[in-house]
């Protein structure tokens, strides 16, 4: 599903962010990618979305070498990946329903499909009664659920989450993690970049730890920090 083969990334400034990352994430897995600031997590995240190009090495997503992808085909590739961010990134000038519908409009879904799917997604993340609310009227946890609904509305096989609990209190953070676990159980491959130790330890999933651009550990039920 996601395969990295000896991927290196050096920025034009000379900063070396990733030094030979090789990993394999299977279909339906739930994986945490952890590491301190500057460990290369964010670079890895951007490489997977083809926002950045690796300096060397190959990246396969859904069995496609994305390094060879033509620029024109990038949008199609990204439709196979749902993305969630720490800061939610909802559009402030539309309500929750419109935010989620927006993701379907972007990919050209017909209005009829949108009308059916959006309420389903709202129900899935427990926001059925907040469809008309605007982002600023929602709590952080609710906003993150809305952004999850948006990421999943086009039914991508992979969900990437960058610090999804970073702006949330522990209760809400835990709620979001449970939601991610539910989504994973429905068959979506979930990759979560985080440094929330509590959650990583409580979830007991596969944990890939980065340090200075290299994988220093990759184990089931791993922990976020060296002890």
């Amino acid at each position: 599903m996601i395969v990295l083969d000896n991927v290196c990334k050096t920025y034009s400034t000379g900063v070396s962010a990733l030094n030979g990352i090789s990993l394999r994430i299977r279909k339906g897995e739930f994986v945490f990618i952890v590491g301190s600031s500057g460990s290369g997590k964010t670079t890895l995240f951007k490489l997977l979305l083809k926002e950045l190009e690796p300096s060397s090495g190959r990246i396969y997503i859904n069995n496609k070498n994305i390094g060879r992808l033509r620029r024109r085909k990038i949008p199609k590739m990204r439709r196979g990946i749902g993305v969630v961010f720490q800061d939610f990134r909802l559009l402030k000038d539309r309500n929750i329903y419109e935010n989620i519908a927006f993701a379907q409009r972007v990919v050209g879904k017909p209005a009829k499909v949108i009308k059916e799917t959006v309420p389903q997604m709202l129900a899935l993340v427990g926001l059925a009664d907040k469809a008309e609310a605007f982002p600023k009227e929602l709590s952080g946890g609710e906003q993150q659920r809305a952004s999850l609904a948006r990421a999943l509305v086009n039914n991508p096989p992979i969900l990437l989450a960058d610090e999804p609990t970073g702006n949330l209190d522990p209760d809400n953070a835990w709620e979001i993690m449970k939601l991610l676990e539910d989504i994973n159980k429905r068959g979506t491959t979930v990759v979560v970049v985080t440094h929330n130790q509590d959650i990583v330890e409580r979830m007991q999933k596969r944990v890939i730890r980065l340090d200075k651009g290299q994988i220093v550990s990759d184990e089931k039920g791993g922990v976020a920090n060296d002890r």
Binding site: L49, P75, M77, V83, R89, L91, V106, V107, G108, N154
Partner: peptide, 16 residues
Amino acid sequence: KDEIAIMKYIGATDVF
């Protein structure tokens, strides 16, 4: 800017 960034992540084409 934000909207465009989100559109790109969702997989919007240049034309869109």
